[in-house]
Design a protein around this nucleic acid. Structure first.
Length: 476
DNA sequence: TTTTGAGTTGTTCGA
DNA sequence: GTCGAACAACTCAAA
């Protein structure tokens, strides 16, 4: 019996329930659809396209063939099922609103054609509808959510091995990956990225093992220091499903069981995986999360619309070195350290009083790990409009944050070579440096590096004043 | 139903 | 220089 396996963000052989299910039935026709229709407001961003290209390239090799099609999945899948004589179609579930709607339509369509349809849990540890409060509601605060998850950790189960995949000798015609134009050309802003990242299932496993061996010990404290290698850097692999959260969970538990000293770091890391679960939980129960304030009172916030300021932020030219370092890391590598993400997001939202959606859009286009749930929930969290959000008065001081989390200035100097010779004392606020110090470091403010586009104290006061308006606004 | 305790990641001010 | 309190009240979740 032939099964059509529709791969989406689950580009892996191991621990892939849909693939395992299909293999148990017989022959497998693997396929991927570059669907630019069923995406809501969120067509794949530039960085994501780059990753997808290489991920698909490796995946096709591992599978010994995959059918690539571009277009509306609701038309392509039924047609291909018919062409291949598949008696079943299966996939792993996704949780974005447009994807859910598409899958629902397809299910009905295929069943009407007398084709069996099976969807599987693969990309989350816990289905969003399976985690409920005592009253049967969805969770809105992380800590009790994760506690409820941990109470049923036994349900996570064991990762599945990679199955033996029988692909028919003759597959229907496929697009050529290179014809999809997923890689940037003019200009090639991703030059050298292949040295930084290894997209694909193998790269994901290598990354996980490297993290468990080199990064996990000391993770709880080290994860906040952007100059150190204590973060897992698994997020793009997880986003594209080259590794499953269940594999991450088991490997981490395994490491913890062999070294009791890893308990604190391991649980902290798993809680971060828990935040990924929480973000998906929130998105599933509030599908407008990427577009609308989760707390309606924030509709009253008096946002600024300063295009020049937004551009300065995007380009890493705000005059606040810690912020600019992060934005340039993002542009040059397709990622940004988590601590710095919070600082740059706080700066855009609170210092520049720019709507969080501007930041969300920029991250969506430039982050390799851009993920609808994580991105939306993260930005709303910083804005204070989201689930379990930061209180309004938490306004990161971009100077203090630099001193605190990049005490030697290693990270900041790496991304701002024009300030490399500045003593650390002035690195995070060069405008405070005496003229002779600037001269000695070869810094000309306003020429080699910008003056701050806003004053910290002034911007902070303006942000707080904005929240006064939110405070008096009615909820829904 | 009502009550109670708690809530990822911070900053500033004044004693 | 260090340390605790204030920054608001609100919403959430469970007892």
């Amino acid at each position: 019996m032939t099964t059509l396996v529709w791969f989406r963000n689950d580009l892996r052989l191991a621990d892939n329930p849909a693939l395992a299910w299909a293999c148990a039935r017989g022959e497998v026709v693997p396929m991927y659809v570059l669907d630019e229709v069923n995406v809501g407001h969120w067509p794949l961003g530039g960085a994501g396209k780059w990753w997808l290209h290489y991920s698909l390239k490796e995946f096709a090799q591992n599978l010994a063939g995959i059918i690539l099609k571009r277009g509306d999945a609701r038309e392509i899948i039924p047609a291909l099922a018919q062409e291949t004589g598949a008696t079943a179609v299966c996939w792993n579930r996704r949780y974005d609103p447009a994807g859910i709607a598409c899958d629902r339509d397809l299910k009905e369509l295929l069943r009407g054609m007398d084709i069996e349809v099976a969807s599987h849990k693969a990309n989350l540890l816990f289905e969003p509808w399976d985690v409920q409060t005592g009253a049967g509601d969805d969770y809105k605060v992380f800590t009790p959510f994760w506690k409820a998850c941990m109470d049923k950790a036994a349900s996570i189960g064991t990762p599945l091995p990679a199955p033996k995949v029988q692909v028919p000798a003759k597959l229907p015609a496929s697009d050529k990956l290179d014809d999809w134009g997923l890689l940037p050309t003019k200009p090639n802003w991703a030059a050298g990225w292949e040295n930084l990242w290894q997209p694909g299932e193998q790269g994901a496993q290598i990354r996980l093992q490297a993290f468990l061996q080199e990064g996990l010990h000391g993770y709880a404290a080290g994860r906040d220091m952007p100059a150190h290698n204590h973060t897992s850097r698994l997020s793009p692999h997880l986003h594209f499903g080259e590794i499953s959260p269940r594999q991450v969970w088991h490997a981490t538990q395994n490491a913890m069981s062999h070294d009791k000293a890893l308990a604190k770091d391991g649980n902290k890391f798993l809680a971060e995986v828990g935040w990924r679960e929480f973000c998906h939980h929130v998105l599933y129960h509030a599908p407008a999360l990427p577009e609308e304030n989760w707390r309606k009172q924030f509709d009253a916030y008096p946002w600024e619309d300063d295009r020049a300021a937004l551009k300065a932020w995007q380009r890493g030219q705000t005059g606040y070195p810690f912020v600019d370092a992060g934005m340039r890391e993002l542009w040059h590598t397709g990622t940004m350290h988590n601590r710095v993400r919070m600082v740059v997001a706080s700066f855009l939202i609170k210092h520049l009083r720019t709507h969080w959606r501007e930041g969300e859009n920029w991250f969506w286009d430039t982050l390799l790990d851009a993920d609808l749930a994580n991105n939306a929930a993260g930005w709303q969290w910083v804005a204070g409009s989201g689930a379990d959000g930061a209180p309004y008065f938490r306004i990161f001081n971009p100077i203090t944050q630099g001193y605190k989390f990049d005490p030697d200035g290693v990270y900041t100097r790496r991304w701002l070579p024009e300030l490399a010779k500045l003593p650390t004392q002035y690195l995070f606020s060069p405008w405070e440096a005496p003229a002779e110090v600037l001269a000695k470091a070869g810094v000309k403010l306003g020429e080699t590096y910008p003056r701050p586009i806003v004053g910290h104290a002034q911007a902070r006061a303006a942000a707080l004043a904005g929240y006064e308006i939110v405070k008096t606004a009615k909820g829904d």
